[in-house]
Amino acid sequence: MEAGDKRQVRATITDVAARSGTSIKTVSRVFNDEPFVRPETRRRVLEAAAALDYHPNMAARSLVRGRSFLIGLFYENPSPNYVVDLQTGALDRLHDERYRLLLFPCENARAVSGRLLQLARTSGLEGIVLAPPLGDDPQTVRDLVEARMPFVRIAPTTALDASPTVGIDDGAAAREMTDHLLSLGHRRIAFVQGDPDHPSNSQRLDGFRGAMQAAGATVDERLIEQGRYTFESGLAAGRRIFADRQRPTAVFAANDDMAAGVVVAAKEAGLDVPGHVSVAGFDDSLISRVTWPQLTTIHQPTYDMAHAATDALLALIEKRPLTPAIRLQHQLLVRGSTTRTASL
């Protein structure tokens, strides 16, 4: 190194051994979580490593143990807000763990059907978290079960005993949102569907229909619009809805990205939200809090679902006890985009 070069030299296992007053073998045993290391010795090694900012070489540890300590998160979702919450939940669960996360964005479930197991094996994965709708692809589930690959699914609707699962009751959540709009006096309510390949789409639509039927309110089929869980599809659906002379007094979109698109379409049509039309979404993603007015929405604990799914996967890999089916709670969040209908 030339004189004046102040670049910091990376600490080595030898440095940690010297600072902690132990041997290189002892330091290695501590970082490999081997038994029969005295607590006081372990403490000294870890303190020395922290002081030196030493981090063991994960690749080298994997070679020694014959394991990769890699898990994969496979997802296919057009909403960037949903994906960020998924990734953050999984990554936070792995904080201070020996495992590392690989991300596998998929174009759609059909494209990866029959290939997912091969992707996992060539990547050296020890386990998999499947986000919807991948967990409902029968070929993928069958391949993983037959190969005995540890996997956990988020929000599946089929073959529920094939793996541990984590999710919410999408139908109940959609019913609660619809009941909220009905309680405000709305009866002519439009619904913007999500991606038809996602099981959550049909569950949320069924919840909407069920609440309307229970209240004796008529569902105008012309106001059931198709979206794709994207802002652009919500904008297009909103433009079609507000082009109708008999416009609705409220619109319930199956996710926040589409609801934000509906808000923009309403403003394009000269409509005030919520003065002329109430708009509601689903997910409680970031866009619901930056849209003006802020969106009334259903809080779907996406971060918590990914965190819990990753925790369950680690338990599955390490053969620890786990809860096979975890049901998390949703929450109705009433914000500025909904109000009582002007007809009251």
Results as ranks from 00 to 15, higher is better:
Glu40Arg: 06
Glu40Gly: 01
Thr88Met: 15
Asp53His: 13
Arg98Glu: 12
Gly66Ile: 13
Leu91Asn: 13
Glu76Leu: 01
Leu101Pro: 07
Phe74Pro: 00
Ala50Val: 00
Val112Arg: 04
Ala48Met: 04
Ala109Ser: 13
Glu107Ile: 04
Ala109Trp: 02
Val64Ser: 13
Phe104Ala: 14
Cys106Met: 13
Arg98Asn: 12
Ala59Met: 15
Leu86Tyr: 10
Met58Phe: 13
Glu47His: 05
Val64Phe: 06
Glu107Arg: 14
Pro39Ser: 11
Leu63Tyr: 04
Asn108Phe: 05
Val112Phe: 05
Gly72Phe: 05
Gly72Asn: 07
Asn77Val: 04
His95Gly: 09
Asn77Ser: 06
Thr88Lys: 14
Asn77Cys: 06
Ala60Ile: 01
Asn81Gly: 15
Arg65Pro: 00
Arg98Thr: 13
Tyr99Lys: 10
Arg100His: 06
Gly114Ile: 03
Arg38Trp: 11
Ala109Asn: 08
Thr41Met: 01
Met58Tyr: 12
Ser68Met: 07
Ala59Tyr: 08
Thr41Glu: 02
Leu101Ile: 09
His95Tyr: 09
Ala48Arg: 08
Val84Ala: 15
Phe74Gln: 02
Asn57Ser: 13
Ala90Tyr: 02
Ala111Leu: 07
Leu73Pro: 01
Tyr75Met: 03
Asp92Asn: 15
Asp96Pro: 00
Arg65His: 11
Thr88Trp: 12
Asp96Phe: 02
Ala49Pro: 00
Leu46Met: 14
Asn108Pro: 00
Leu91Glu: 15
Pro39Tyr: 07
Ala59Ser: 14
Arg93Tyr: 15
Arg93Trp: 15
Phe36Asp: 15
Gln87Asn: 15
Ala51Val: 01
Tyr75Gln: 02
Leu94Asp: 09
Ser68Ile: 06
Pro39Lys: 10
Arg42Gly: 05
Val64Leu: 08
Thr88Leu: 14
Asn108Met: 11
Leu94His: 12
Leu52Asp: 05
Leu101Cys: 08
Gly72Arg: 03
Thr41His: 04
Leu91Val: 05
Ala50Leu: 03
Ala48Trp: 05
Val83Ala: 11
Leu86Ser: 13
Ala90Arg: 11
Asp85Met: 12
Tyr82Asn: 04
Tyr54Thr: 07
Val64Thr: 10
Val84Asp: 12
Asp96Ile: 02
Arg67His: 11
Ser113Thr: 05
Arg100Tyr: 03
Arg98Pro: 05
Asp92Ala: 06
Pro39Phe: 04
Val37Leu: 08
Val84Trp: 13
Ala90Met: 02
Ala51Pro: 12
Tyr75Phe: 15
Gly114Met: 04
Leu94Lys: 04
Ala50Lys: 10
Glu47Phe: 03
Arg61Glu: 01
Pro39Ala: 11
Pro80Glu: 04
Glu40Met: 04
Leu86Glu: 12
Arg38Tyr: 14
Leu103Gln: 03
Leu103Asn: 01
Val37Thr: 07
Leu103Tyr: 02
Ala111Ile: 00
Ser68Glu: 02
Ala48Tyr: 04
Leu70Thr: 02
Arg42Thr: 03
